[in-house]
Structure formats: C-alpha cells, structure tokens
Design a protein around this nucleic acid. Structure first.
Lengths: 240, 240
DNA sequence: CGATCCATTGATTCTTATCAAAATAGGTGG
DNA sequence: CCACCTATTTTGATAAGAATCAATGGATCG
C-alpha cells in the first residue's frame, strides 16, 4: 500500500478528494486504498451507466474523466455534469435506485465500488459532503446555462473544474490539465463548438486564460470568481 | 378532519400528491392532515428559505406557488425550479443542512412541517420518490436550458408543470391554472420577458396552447411529449 | 382617478447558430 | 520515415434567434 502524508504527492486522487471533504481515519483510508487497488478499467466513449437502469453499487471514479449526459432523439446532447477523479459516478440509495441520466466515459480510466460507509463510519461525512457538492454543481450549471453569456459560461465552468480538481490535488492556482475537447465543452455549455472556439480565442487574446495541449491556466481565478459573483460552497474541513 | 376517498375531490393537494407517489396508510394520512391543518401562511414575494442558511425542518408546500432561485449581483435572476403544492420547500438531512438556493414565494400560500417519516413509515417511500423526482426535474431543467429553443423550452416546462400538478390533482389533460407571469417564465427559461411573450403568441397562433386569465391549456400534451422526446420518470404506484 | 403591474408592439442590435471548408495535430501502418 | 487517416481546431460568410430599448395598452386596486 502506498504511503500517506501531508507532504506526499502520490496519494490517490480519490483519497485526496474525500479526505479534503471530511477527515478520514486509518481504516477509512485503508478501505479506500483497497477499493482503488481493485479498480476496474474502462475506455473512452464507454457508457458506464445507462439511463433508467438500476444502480447496484455506489461507484467512485478513480482515474480519467466522465460525464453525465442526456440526449435527444435528434442527436442533440447535453452534458449535465463532468465527473472527475474522486467523484461518485453513481450513488445507490435504497430510495433512488434508478439512474436519472447516463454516464459516459470521456477518456480511458478506472472506477471502483465505494466502500460501505456503515462499515467505515469516517466515510459517511465525506460522502455526505460529496453529495451536497454535487447538488450545488447542478444548480451552478442551471445558473450558467440560464443566465450567463458564452464568455461567462466558459470562465465559470473552467473555474469550477479548477476548484474541483484542486480538491483531488490535480490543480493549483487555476492550472490543470484536461482531456476536454471544445465539442465536449460545447455540449456542457449549451453552445456550438464553433462558438466555443471563437469565445476561447477571445479569452486568450484578452489574456484571461491559456489552453494549449490540454493544459489550462486561468490567469486570474480570483477575478473570475468576483465577476461571476457567485458564492461557491466552501469546504471548511482540514486536509487529510 | 376531511373525509378521504377515491371519489373525493377535496383531498388536500399535499396528501393527494404524496399518495400518488407511494401508498399511504391511515396513520400517515392522519399525520399529514394534522400537519396541513396547522400550516403557516406566507405572502407573495416572501423569502421562505435563504441561501446558505441552515435548514431546521423539512417543509411541505401546502398551498400556493414558490420557486427556488439564485441571483447574480447585477440583478440577473434564475429560477431553478418551481415549487407546487405538495412539493418539499426544503429538506433537512443530517448530511446536508445548508440551503443551496433561496426559496421565494410567488403567491400567497401556506406551508407546514413534513411529518417525521420515522414516526410514520409509510411516508418514507413517498418522500424518497419525491426527492428522486426533484433531481429528475433539475436534470430536465438543464436539458431545457442547454439544448432546447425558446419555443421548445416553453412547451417542455408547461408540460412538466401539467404533469406535476396532475399528481396533486390540480391539472387534467394538460389544463391547469397558474399564477405565473411571463416574467417568471422568462426567469425560469433563461429568456427575456419580451421574447417569452412573442414565443407564447406564436404557440397560441399555431394552436398549440391557450393561456388566458391564468388558465393554461396544452392542446396536445402527447404531441409535446413526443417532440421533446424525453423520457420522464414514471410513477408506477397506485393512487391513494 | 391615479398608480401599478402586466401584456403587447415596434425597431434595432447583438449574440449565437449554421454551413462549409481549410488547417493542424496525432496516430497507424507500410 | 513517410503517407494516410481521423479527430480536432480554426477560419470565413451568412442567417437565425434572442436581447435591448422604448413605448403603448389593459387590467386591477385603493
């Protein structure tokens, strides 16, 4: 098993993220590490969850990116939410056994079953915060699509991704790497790929961000946060 | 206490709706009726829940309409979701004590505390289905804002409202009465009031719907459902 | 009757979509 | 290493959709 510690940069993103959301004790970390070690692989474009299907187990995304999507018969597609390492791909509740949207892999990656929180109580709080954040992200997406301009939508989404990746130790200061194409971005933002392209170019020329080779850098995350003026849920707990 | 029965048209919408979602036994119905009898009043424009506030009790909307909203500093407003009689205004979970959006009353009305499901087990299933539907509505809203045209958005939203009101016994065959103004509609649909007005007129002239005096009639709900081509969560349980 | 809220209309501008094509990059097999 | 293939980004020209600004009408209410 891999070593753990505050000065350790090789902690699994899943563990890093959940540990950012709530303090984890030893057994919880061990259980997560074991789950991660037994993770199953998937490949890009694979449908990880089918809409309307029964969800048997809660699943964690260990590596790679995915998206919750809904499609219309005429081919229009909406990405509801991006799923990043450490996120829940699916949540099995006694309440709500049916998947309300599909989950599609955007890259190759790995997932594992989420350890049962009744066996590892320290996980319960982390899972709860994770689910609360998920709802907050959905509301953010609605605000974005309903009331922000193309330019604002892009900035706001990239900031959200930066914030979320930072929880998993995969972004610092608005810089992160991403497998997103402009088309995926368009599907998430309710825009056309062409318009995303043009808007991105404007943002680059305005010096607001750079994006080359899958490496994104938001030049002034604080300014974006201020301009979009939206309060984000804060996570007050200490890191693992 | 008011009488109950299948041929009874005076059942409280709250009871009607929850009974549509899952079978209720006698004690559950009694508890709901008592809660409703003790309902508190609110008036239009009142902020029923403030964003970021701790939610103490789960609350049910007994009468009147409300909306979950988020605002930007510059005044832009997004209605995330309309709340109808029988809906939960707020859900108190041990997990998620913080309101992720404000709730504003759109009309005068009444609300009450939701009876504790641990005291009335029959309510548990109804509450669970209600929450599952809530998430589905959010996803529907995202699809609407991201990928539907103004014309489609209006039709789709009105259809959703019709379906939901029907659960509470307040709509039949796509006909219902509503306190919505075109401005509220605009805030929900990510459009301007002027554009909503024009789009509504086109829909009326096309014979798709009528809307006079707060009375809406969708002339061919089935056709709308087909065109927007979206699967809605079905409720399979029998009526109360 | 004035005040207010809401629906409606017109004229115009701005944003974003559409259609089509070219350029670029990455990967594969010969 | 090159030729080819595919996916992605970029560009240009044009059209459609929706916003904006401003004003008028209609109702309702005290």
């Amino acid at each position: 098993m891999k070593p753990l510690g505050k000065n350790n940069v090789t902690v699994e993103p899943v563990i890093r993220r959940l540990g950012s959301l709530a303090p984890l004790d030893g057994p919880a970390v061990t259980a997560l590490q074991e789950a991660v070690d037994g993770a199953a692989s998937f490949s890009a474009r694979q449908e990880l969850v089918r809409e309307g299907t029964e969800i048997q187990h809660s699943l964690l995304l260990v590596q790679g990116w995915a998206a919750r999507t809904r499609c219309l018969e005429d081919g229009r597609r909406q990405i509801i939410h991006f799923l990043l390492p450490g996120d829940f791909i699916a949540v099995a509740t006694a309440d709500r056994p049916i998947a309300s949207s599909a989950v599609t892999a955007l890259t190759d990656g790995k997932f594992c079953a989420a350890p049962d929180p009744s066996a590892f109580p320290a996980l319960r709080a982390a899972y709860a915060v994770s689910h609360a954040l998920d709802e907050a992200y959905l509301l953010g997406q609605i605000m974005r699509l309903g009331r922000l301009s193309a330019h604002e939508r892009i900035q706001d989404l990239l900031l959200e991704l930066s914030d979320r990746l930072e929880l998993a130790g995969m972004a610092q200061d608005g810089q992160f790497s991403t497998p997103l194409t402009q088309e995926m971005l368009a599907d998430a933002l309710g825009l056309t790929p062409v318009h995303v392209n043009r808007t991105l170019q404007q943002a680059r020329q305005a010096g607001e961000l750079s994006w080359r080779n899958g490496e994104v850098a938001l030049h002034d995350p604080r300014e974006i946060r201020r301009k979009v003026g939206r309060l984000r849920l804060r996570v007050s707990q200490p890191m693992v």
